[in-house]
Simulated scan of single mutants.
Amino acid sequence: MADEFMKGFALFTIGGLGWITFGGWYRTPSYYQVSQLVNPAEGVNTAYGEVGLLAGDVLFWLMILGALTFWVLIPASRQLRDALDDGDDDAAAN
């Protein structure tokens, strides 16, 4: 279980730091505004800017889905598999 936690934490950390970095570059017009990382992108006129916006969105979803996968989905699937295997063992013993 600790292995899955660390994998999820690593994806959460890498995705979060990347999202904050690209959000700071492309989605923060002023550091004095309340909403900084969720603003629409302004003034992105180059292909590199579009790649930066795409990278920020990909890293955001890596942060969310990576942690969700390793913290919730994999442990839940293992417990479901163990519960189903226990039911098969009880049926085979009778």
Score class of each variant (00 low, 15 high):
residue 3 D to W: 12
residue 3 D to S: 12
residue 6 M to P: 02
residue 7 K to D: 04
residue 7 K to C: 04
residue 11 L to M: 10
residue 11 L to N: 03
residue 12 F to T: 00
residue 12 F to N: 01
residue 12 F to A: 06
residue 13 T to A: 14
residue 14 I to A: 04
residue 15 G to C: 02
residue 15 G to Q: 03
residue 17 L to S: 13
residue 17 L to P: 08
residue 20 I to K: 10
residue 20 I to N: 14
residue 21 T to N: 13
residue 22 F to Y: 15
residue 22 F to C: 06
residue 22 F to I: 04
residue 23 G to S: 08
residue 23 G to T: 08
residue 23 G to A: 15
residue 26 Y to S: 05
residue 28 T to E: 13
residue 29 P to E: 04
residue 29 P to V: 05
residue 29 P to D: 05
residue 31 Y to G: 11
residue 32 Y to K: 07
residue 33 Q to K: 11
residue 33 Q to Y: 07
residue 34 V to A: 08
residue 34 V to T: 05
residue 36 Q to D: 05
residue 36 Q to E: 05
residue 36 Q to R: 07
residue 37 L to C: 02
residue 37 L to E: 03
residue 38 V to A: 15
residue 40 P to I: 08
residue 40 P to M: 08
residue 41 A to K: 06
residue 42 E to T: 06
residue 43 G to H: 01
residue 44 V to P: 06
residue 44 V to D: 03
residue 44 V to R: 01
residue 46 T to E: 06
residue 46 T to K: 07
residue 46 T to W: 05
residue 47 A to P: 02
residue 48 Y to P: 03
residue 49 G to H: 07
residue 50 E to K: 11
residue 50 E to T: 11
residue 53 L to P: 04
residue 54 L to C: 11
residue 54 L to A: 13
residue 55 A to C: 12
residue 56 G to N: 00
residue 56 G to T: 00
residue 57 D to Q: 04
residue 57 D to V: 02
residue 58 V to I: 09
residue 58 V to A: 10
residue 59 L to S: 01
residue 59 L to I: 01
residue 59 L to R: 01
residue 60 F to V: 03
residue 61 W to Q: 12
residue 61 W to Y: 14
residue 62 L to S: 00
residue 62 L to K: 00
residue 64 I to V: 14
residue 64 I to P: 02
residue 68 L to H: 03
residue 68 L to S: 05
residue 68 L to I: 00
residue 69 T to S: 06
residue 71 W to Q: 03
residue 71 W to R: 02
residue 72 V to W: 06
residue 72 V to A: 14
residue 72 V to M: 09
residue 72 V to K: 05
residue 73 L to D: 08
residue 75 P to S: 03
residue 76 A to W: 04
residue 77 S to G: 06
residue 77 S to K: 14
residue 78 R to Y: 07
residue 78 R to T: 06
residue 80 L to E: 10
residue 81 R to P: 03
residue 81 R to Q: 14
residue 82 D to Y: 10
residue 82 D to G: 06
residue 82 D to K: 09
residue 84 L to I: 09
residue 84 L to A: 09
residue 85 D to N: 11
residue 85 D to P: 03
residue 86 D to Q: 15
residue 86 D to M: 15
residue 87 G to W: 08
residue 88 D to F: 10
residue 88 D to A: 10
residue 88 D to H: 12
residue 89 D to Q: 14
residue 90 D to E: 15
residue 92 A to Q: 09
residue 92 A to I: 12
residue 93 A to Y: 06
residue 94 N to T: 15
